[in-house]
Simulated scan of single mutants.
Amino acid sequence: MDKTPLVSIIIPNFNHSRFLRERLESVFNQTFEDFEVILLDDASTDSSVEILEEYAKDPRVSHLVVNKENSGSPFRQWQRGIELSQGKYIWIAESDDSCDPDFLLTCVAMMKNNPKAVIAFGGSITIDENSSKIEIDNDRWYDKRFKRRQGECRVFDGIRYITHNLIWINYIYNASGTLFRRDAYGDGSEFESCMRMRNAGDWLFWSIMATKGDVIEIYRKLNHFRFHSGSTTREGVNKGKSNGNLFDEDFIVLRHIFENTRIPTLRKMIRLGALMKKIQRAQMSEEDRKAAYHKGKELLKYNKKDYLTERISKTLSNFIPGISTIRNDRL
């Protein structure tokens, strides 16, 4: 490439040959053109590498890296791509998703207009394995308090975004719909814990990243987020559909948030109580449940008072608006 690109687009792939052309076409056909593409394959066993080699002939592709052995974590591929990147902004375009042609144009403009921002993300249309739209809306814009309008955006202080939003759930649920600043990643040492995770690494990643500056929510559905039938999602875990394997990572994320931000005592107690309730209701053996309780207590220091506070607040929230606000603390 003749000059340093403004955006580095990282496409980490593993066995997504079925969706790969759709993803690559949506990237190379962006209306914003100042970018490089970094293609990564994590030892796929399908025809992915042949497709990537075909697209690697495009002059905008700066790297094609094919692993001989699987890395064991999708977030290791994030790390590799970021290390190779040259751009001011990073877009991790997951290989099974696709997007609107104006995705980059919109997000880059928002970041340029808000120099303190480190993250800009939009909404997603959920699609199935055949790229057909399905009625699953992961964006939490349209409740009674937040009447977000299509096309609008809001800028939030990053710490407040963590303590009001990310403490409850990973609102930045899809990397493919997100642009972030490369300099906020630094040398990557702060993010090393994310790279060892298999499921909650993105939740921790955005929780760390948001400490570096502002967060922009763009109320446009610029991304196509693919939902795979039979997949285990974090939303499923929140509904109790888990064998307990994901709780260890939940504990790590919440411990990081509690240690690095100032959470009001009542909000913290309610959040810990909600976690205890989730463990109690999860589908797992009693032996696994006891082990999860013990590990959570060890890492987060929760106790029965937290559980009772959450249960009482749940009951009172029907009568006392202030309690309801704490329980539904979304900015």
Results as ranks from 00 to 15, higher is better:
G87I: 05
R196L: 10
M197E: 02
A117P: 04
F319R: 07
I320E: 06
S131Y: 15
S48V: 11
F121K: 06
R76M: 11
T265R: 15
V118K: 04
G273S: 12
I82K: 07
L300K: 13
A56L: 08
F247A: 09
D100Q: 00
R160Y: 01
R148F: 12
T45N: 10
C99T: 14
G87V: 04
C107Q: 13
M276R: 09
Q79I: 00
K116A: 12
V61E: 01
D202V: 04
D250L: 08
S207Q: 01
V37C: 04
I9K: 12
R149C: 13
I257T: 04
G123M: 11
Y302W: 10
L52V: 10
Y293V: 01
Q280M: 09
T126F: 00
S132P: 07
H224N: 15
D187L: 03
S71C: 08
K305W: 06
K57P: 14
L308I: 12
L246P: 01
S317A: 14
F35S: 05
A291Y: 03
L299I: 04
T261W: 08
I90N: 07
R311V: 03
R60F: 03
E50K: 02
E54F: 06
V253F: 02
A210W: 14
D187T: 00
F75R: 02
Y185Q: 14
M111H: 11
I90M: 08
W141P: 08
F251P: 06
N170M: 01
N114A: 10
R181I: 12
S48C: 15
L316S: 13
M269V: 04
P12R: 08
T178C: 01
R23M: 08
R281F: 00
F191S: 06
S242P: 10
H256I: 13
L39V: 15
I125Y: 10
S242C: 09
T232N: 15
T163N: 06
A56D: 04
L300E: 13
M1K: 11
G81H: 06
L272N: 01
F35V: 09
V155D: 09
R198G: 12
G122W: 12
D139K: 03
D288M: 03
I172P: 02
P74H: 04
D58H: 15
G177F: 13
G236W: 11
F75C: 05
T126I: 09
I82P: 01
S176H: 00
I159C: 13
Q280F: 07
N318A: 03
C99Y: 07
Y171A: 05
R182H: 05
K3F: 06
V27H: 05
M269W: 09
L40N: 09
I167H: 00
G122E: 14
S73Q: 02
C153F: 15
D183H: 11
F156M: 11
F156G: 12
T106H: 07
D214Q: 01
G186T: 05
G186D: 09
E54Y: 12
C153S: 15
I208T: 06
E259W: 00
